[in-house]
Nucleic acid binder design. Structure first.
Lengths: 265, 265
DNA sequence: TTGAATAGTCACCCGTTTAATCACAAAAAG
DNA sequence: CTTTTTGTGATTAAACGGGTGACTATTCAA
């Protein structure tokens, strides 16, 4: 269990370094050097199992990236930057590159994005679904109806709801425990609570929402109760937009009926 | 000039997406979809020049990453997330992964990192050199002597100097214009200025520094005056540590002599 | 209903990349 | 001066990914 190879820091570090664009040799070399502090090609080769003759190329790669300093002697010595410095280096580089991407993508984004009115779109993965929900919150003019299992009501979503509320959007929320209801009432005084449509907790249900009566989204948690809760790739959602959209029509009918009875008390 | 293929947003976006781990097809597919908003495999294939039959694989990849939603119809329709949402998705993922890396690396970092006392280490690239300088600033107990060309005196370095000053480290700074000297005096009241050792501006000199009389670093800007100033990979530095380190001995001698005459006025 | 066109899936080929091995020259160590 | 260690370059082998085409399913129009 605890010796699961994917769980030791070495494997994690190597995996991430590779995914950040380092070669396998460079990644393993850096991890070896990071645990050694300083060392020669021979030292590195022994702990990293990188062929000694290839350590030099790996070091070149790392040196160019600013992750390793080199002492010109014989044998050459290599010095790894600290965990903190190395991580900061990546952070800076990646931040810079996402900025590049953001600028480039916005430049070629179409002016108006019409969305198919008669179909139902699918989204995969909890982070992606959350992003979509946030987009919807941000686009709301009038009303947000949001029903969710509590584990999916994350901080950023509450924030998104709060911002909408400040714009004057009326918030109707269901599915959360009484304790959390209190917290919501504190942060978003305008929010109204209503009861879930069905017994919520033991199903695989995820969330259901409606924006201004014409955008809807429904999601389900696809892995059973035994699945690891840390796996975020377990939510699948569908959404639709437009007055006559089938999903919208169905959910609007349900919500209208339900809200009339639930909120009129 | 302006039609330089590496400068158009498409190419930039594709390049970044690929470096973030997408396949070439997926990257080109996403960029095509981002400009279309919505489209079928055929549409995508036409603008992206990805073989139509492979658009589906690419979409799978993008769908799994939460960058594209899919409408199940015939023909299938694909919907790209907005530039902002897509960038945020990457930002989140990369932030998460640098955190993983940071944790993993710190776990395997050696307790004490002794540094070779008799050698001179080399660092490549302006960002890497800056990182090293910041590390040194952070480790200073007593005194920082720092001489730099003005273009290399970036915000984060001034910050690092400020933090050191607040710890009670005495700061001695040279090479900056009188305007910037004023600004420094405002932000770091304790800092003292002295004149450069030589005519600084038209050489390829970069920076020279000494920490507590026993850590030193010197750098040069390696590309000539005609090189593009935006290229950050043009600085090479050497550094050394320890009382008897050759680089330290030399620079300490110079600085001691110079500071005695320059600061005593 | 039927046939042409379009959409979608799958399997295969081939080139590039990169890991891995080897051969050899230069430099240290004994 | 010999032997070991170190560093560089070339070479081989395998994996990955781009590119193409065959084949089935679906749609649309006669």
């Amino acid at each position: 269990m605890s010796s699961d190879p994917v769980d030791n820091p070495q494997a994690i570090a190597i995996e991430q370094l590779e995914r950040f664009g380092l070669s396998a040799y460079a990644a393993r070399t850096f991890v070896a050097l990071a645990s050694l502090g300083t060392g020669t090609a021979r030292d590195v080769s022994q702990v990293s199992e990188v062929p000694r003759t290839r350590v030099y190329d790996a070091i070149d790669e790392l040196h160019d990236r600013g992750l390793v300093d080199v002492l010109q002697s014989s044998p050459k010595q290599f010095w790894a930057t600290s965990a903190e410095t190395a991580s900061r280096t990546f952070e800076h580089e990646l931040q810079h590159r996402t900025d590049l991407l953001r600028t480039a993508l916005s430049e070629l984004e179409p002016i108006e994005r019409r969305v198919e009115q008669h179909g139902v779109w699918t989204v995969e993965g909890q982070p992606a679904v959350t992003e979509r929900v946030l987009d919807f919150f941000a686009s709301a003019d009038d009303e947000i109806v949001y029903m969710t299992v509590e584990e999916l009501l994350t901080e950023d979503l509450i924030e998104g709801l709060g911002e909408a509320a400040e714009r004057g959007v009326s918030i109707k929320l269901a599915g959360v425990s009484t304790e959390v209801q209190k917290r919501i009432q504190d942060e978003i005084p305008g929010a109204r609570m209503f009861e879930s449509l069905w017994v919520w907790s033991d199903t695989s249900a995820g969330r259901v929402m409606m924006i201004d009566g014409q955008k809807t989204l429904a999601s389900a948690l696809v892995n059973g109760a035994d699945a690891s809760p840390s796996d975020p790739r377990s939510e699948t959602a569908i959404w639709g937009e437009g007055d006559t959209n089938s999903l919208v029509v169905v959910l609007r009918a349900i919500f209208t009926w339900r809200l009339d009875t639930a909120l009129s008390e």
